[in-house]
Design a protein around this nucleic acid. Structure first.
Lengths: 136, 136
DNA sequence: TTTTTATGTCATAAAACCTAACATGGTGTT
DNA sequence: AACACCATGTTAGGTTTTATGACATAAAAA
């Protein structure tokens, strides 16, 4: 493991490249940032730098706009998705905890989970997948 | 398969990012280009844009320089590697052809290959592998 | 010692990007 | 119809980043 790893969150691309990759105009990209659908990093000199995740988000935004969803709607969908991620993590954590519980306690938890079911929207957006970008 | 695929050869990164990723100075990168170890693409406005492959090459150059190899040597190594790639393709092709040959002809070919063995340097450079960059 | 190699540094010019402001075609409301 | 708002286009003026070319220099090679 070298020290120079890049994450999907690492800011790599200037806006010009992102324009090509997403087929959005600079105006659109900046507008979406202004409305907090994305938050690209900035260089010391204040230039936007986008990560792979940012590009995924922009592609999702584009899809949704093509489907007639307005920015307010997209914002809602995004925050719903965040919630979903949170609940997924909660579920994992719950599983961990369960293993350390007695069967008795486990039954209690299961019962309470069942009575609270359906709290969150379970439908998922198309997951951003950069694999279509990186062919060898 | 969408129309917006990115290949390892697709010019994506400006020199500033490449500097961070490779820990080389702009001067070094330009010098290596001047001596034809890399050939990054150019924008309409004449700015260098680097692909993932370019970055791999730069990292290999850096490694070799750290090991005391000079630019002339690196150039040789690179063209040797190209040759190797070619021979690999030749070998594949040869395999294909062999399947269409009679056992008799096959024996002839094998004999001639054996008598000509060791023509090319078989040692391989560390293959550039961007997987260290793209962690999820 | 002289030359070559690899890199640093500086000056100048241009490309790419920034923000801010105003313009405009739809869409929805009164 | 008149108005307002949304999403985007366009233009202007300023800053950052990159390009090239020239000169400087330490280390290695000749």
């Amino acid at each position: 493991m070298s020290g120079s790893e890049i994450r999907r969150t690492m800011p790599l691309f200037p806006i010009g490249i992102v324009m090509q990759l997403t087929d959005l105009t600079a105006r659109q990209i900046r507008y979406y940032e202004e409305h907090q659908l994305i938050s690209p990093a900035r260089t010391e000199g204040n230039r936007r730098m986008f990560s792979l995740n940012d590009i995924d988000l922009l592609l999702e935004i584009k899809d949704l706009i093509d489907q007639g969803v307005n920015l307010a709607g997209i914002k809602q969908l995004f925050s719903a998705k965040e919630k979903q991620v949170v609940t997924e993590e909660m579920q994992k954590e719950a599983k961990k905890v369960r293993r350390e519980l007695s069967d008795d306690e486990l039954r209690k938890i299961l019962r309470s989970e069942l009575t609270q079911a359906g709290r969150f929207n379970r439908s998922s957006l198309r997951q951003g997948d950069m694999s279509r970008f990186f062919k060898s």
